[in-house]
Amino acid sequence: MSDFLIETENLTFSYGSQPILHGISLRVKPGAVYGFIGQNGAGKTTTIKVLLSLLPDFGGQVCLFGNSIRRRRLGILARTGALVEEPALYQHLTGQENLLNRALLLRLPRQRTQDILRQVGLYEARHKKVVAYSQGMRQRLGIGLALLGAPDLLILDEPTNGLDPNGIREIRELLTGLSRQGVTVFLSSHLLSEVEKIVTDLGIIHQGSLLFQGPIESLRDSAREELCLDTNDNRRCFDLLQADYPQVGWKNGLPSLGGVSREEAARLNARLVGQGLAVYALEWARKDLEQLYFDIIQTPPPTP
């Protein structure tokens, strides 16, 4: 019996002759809030669709709850709630009718739909047709549909899409609460900053390959110190540094350098002053997760 609730082994998938996933080996522990991060087109949704058996022609092994998705599809899906891409809603029906339809299929009492409507903040709008819902309301109803069956595993693909900051915070609180109740949450996002506050574990996928996987703390621990320099002409400072330090980057509008010692920092200060720059501050800072993420996928972050 595996220790993991989701476990894939060398998962591959191709659309026709175009390979999409290259040997993904996911490990998601029970009770974890697992953030699956990657840029658009990295393979997040494809992975999720394979986990949910929507793409049956994959290579490798996929096990959920210790069972192969190929052999125990129905048993696995009975314990899983999912939101894949944009919410799939019947627009000619009301929010409540959408939930009632799902409740009928899952053999749940009507009362459960009322509870979910309250939980996702749509109780007042329950009699409105979905066609009249805003993007945020649709997203919340989609999450409500995923939650309806009180699943042990919740798979959410970009759940905060279309939500305003308040809505994002509500979803974060909702997911944190579910996690406390023992629900395992697997959520994808293209923004690390959006999920870093709630996830316990992280997987970073880039161009179909899993580049990092582990507890978010291990990623934080790997954050290296950086030297940030604030001068009267930061652009010139950046140009001056670039000749000798190709790793120089930008952080919060300031030139920043990783991998320099304190002695080297003092020499740099003297050199910049010698070049006529007024140095206001030399500050040691840790890299944030977003920067680490970009380091991992080896794509430079946008410069200010």
């Binding site: 949910l52 129905l74 894949v84 944009e86 799939a88 809603l89 299929l105």
Partner: peptide
């Protein structure tokens, strides 16, 4: 069309139904 418009085939096929 009900399923196509709602893009719901993927949702329907994630139900614990054959």
């Amino acid at each position: 069309q009900i399923e196509h418009v709602a893009n719901a085939w993927k949702n329907v096929f994630t139900l614990p139904y054959p």
